[in-house]
């Protein structure tokens, strides 16, 4: 069997199929896909509104009247709760830093911060992240989403050449 080394995690095809059904439900109920990074920009938009800061992009990003009525914000809160519950049931909640052996604790965190920064920037530029643009848009057969998805893999395979050491 392919999953002998990760017995605690479910089969990836099963996970993918279930994830697909959830995404399908999202399309059929809300008429939109599941996203992640959008919750951050919409939170920023509502905070800017609160602080009376006006910005062309954030104005563009305001889809709902308030923070708590933003679909994606609620959905991302759900992701957090769901992930927590799953890990709790599986006994996987643990304060830890996932890193390669050859990298120190603090440089791993710095690396994650830089990676996150790049992703935050890129997700706004591409109008979505792996969930919102690649997964949801890809399932809607949008060519831009497929180009985006392909670019993610290309970018990551190029970058891994330089950061491979930190993961070993």
């Amino acid at each position: 069997m392919s999953d002998k080394c990760h017995t605690t995690y479910i089969n990836p095809y099963l996970a993918g199929g279930l994830l697909g059904l959830v995404l399908l439900a999202s399309f059929l109920i809300a008429g939109r896909g599941i996203g992640a990074s959008g919750a951050i920009s919409q939170s920023l938009a509502h905070s800017a509104d609160f602080l009376n800061i006006s910005n062309a992009y954030l104005e563009e990003q305001k889809y709902s009247n308030s923070f708590w009525s933003s679909w994606i914000v609620i959905e991302v809160i759900g992701i957090f709760i769901g992930a927590f519950l799953s890990a709790k049931f599986a006994g996987r909640i643990k304060k830890e830093t996932i890193k390669g052996d050859s990298i120190s604790h603090s440089s791993r965190l710095r690396q994650a911060l830089i990676g996150g920064l790049l992703m935050g920037l890129a997700a706004r530029l591409a109008r979505g992240c792996t969930s919102g643009q690649a997964l949801s848009g890809g399932a809607m057969l949008s060519v831009g989403s497929w180009a985006f998805m392909l670019s993610i893999f290309i970018g990551a395979y190029i970058a891994i050449v330089f950061v491979r050491k930190s993961w070993s």
């Binding site: 992640a36 997700a123 670019s151 290309i154």
Partner: peptide, 17 residues
Amino acid sequence: GGLILGVGFAVAGYCPG
């Protein structure tokens, strides 16, 4: 955006979701 996000993914080890 995809290329940059890919680089970020490889560096951070996570995608936004």
